[in-house]
Design a protein around this nucleic acid. Sequence first.
DNA 1: ATAAAAACTTAGACATATCTAACAAAAATA
DNA 2: TATTTTTGTTAGATATGTCTAAGTTTTTAT
Lengths: 215, 215
Amino acid sequence: MISFTEENYLKSVFHLSNVSSEVSVKDVSADLGIKMPTVTSMMKKLAAKGLVEYQSYKPVKLTPRGQTEAALVIRKHRLTEMFLVEHMGFGWEEVHEIAEQIEHVKAPALFNRMDEIMGHPKVDPHGSPIPDRHGKIMSRKLRKLSELSEGDTFTIEAVTNSEDDFLNYLNQRDLSLGTVLQVVFIEPFDFSITVRYKDKETILSKTVSDRLLGE
Amino acid sequence: MISFTEENYLKSVFHLSNVSSEVSVKDVSADLGIKMPTVTSMMKKLAAKGLVEYQSYKPVKLTPRGQTEAALVIRKHRLTEMFLVEHMGFGWEEVHEIAEQIEHVKAPALFNRMDEIMGHPKVDPHGSPIPDRHGKIMSRKLRKLSELSEGDTFTIEAVTNSEDDFLNYLNQRDLSLGTVLQVVFIEPFDFSITVRYKDKETILSKTVSDRLLGE
DNA sequence: ATAAAAACTTAGACATATCTAACAAAAATA
DNA sequence: TATTTTTGTTAGATATGTCTAAGTTTTTAT
Ligand SMILES: [Mn+2]
Ligand SMILES: [Mn+2]
Ligand SMILES: [Mn+2]
Ligand SMILES: [Mn+2]
């Protein structure tokens, strides 16, 4: 049995693995807001359970089983988010915190039912892929808005961050998944991008354009 | 902040208070499957938090605040059960275990949304009343089927027990909330009751007739 | 190559929630 | 009333998950 707490560590290592190739104790510590000694001891525990590979002073890595278990928690998280948006009328900025709690519920039937009711959605409200029942994830290689050049066209397909502050910022500017943007101008000084969409023109900072994925 | 565990103790004391007038440490111990010394120490903790009245060797009692908090957890439980049945297609025998977990989610918006979507239901799938946002519970005085006499008519309005075994037993016999029964015969030896309903005639044991409430 | 800084681990403490063993009080029975 | 049984408490142990303080190892900078 994997505890609530252990599930959160697995998810953290999983997410960090998709950001950089090596995941350090420090990274996990920062990500979860838990001190390094605690992370070290949890890594030993997860290693003993066969969920992570751990050697002192080395980066940590999920074992295949650890990856599957992490993906299954993420599946529960994303199905929940999608269900809250699609069937309960929540905004995409409201669902992450609720899903953080419901993802730990041990009731496969609940999540399989959500999946069925929604017709097996491929992505969550933030454009992140939903792993299947076996923990397999479809990977799409999307580009960041910040990587484009002047004159390019871009469709928002995902956001890399689900904090409500950021999503409310996007809501205020009427930016959502599916919005098509034209890159009008890139400021060489701070890389802020002027974009045109839906008869509007706005300047987005690099912080924002780094968090928007699409093609 | 009331922990997951504390919430379960409050719920237990609350439920037991509605069964008998006095709630003992033993009762809570039996109800939660937790040893008596553990219950004693939790009662002290809850007393320190102002949620129960506790004195050594005396029955335990919820304070008004303890009652409200218990009722709010029960509200979350029952709204969840109702939502699972009404909006996710689960049977009344499947929802209790899932609700036992979701009732601990800290997200008032989630439960208020369920409540809204369902149009503020008064009872859960087992006929138990759903407390309002302030923890107030409508009380209906229903009779047990076991209290009736031969020739009486009875409409099932609630069950006192949500174990899947019991509910599957009722499902098999096509007994559900709203079913109208005629009491045909009461066996004086073991108080089993012969009932007629929907062109059927069945014998229900005292164990069963004690768990069916109605009027 | 050495010193300094950063990352990591070990050791030990603490909070929560549980248990068993032993004892004490209250209730039931003789 | 005296004894036995039941119920409840105290004391101390254990498991999980967290922390701080103090060292180690590795990496970076001088
Ligand atoms: Mn999320
Ligand atoms: Mn979580
Ligand atoms: Mn998401
Ligand atoms: Mn229930």
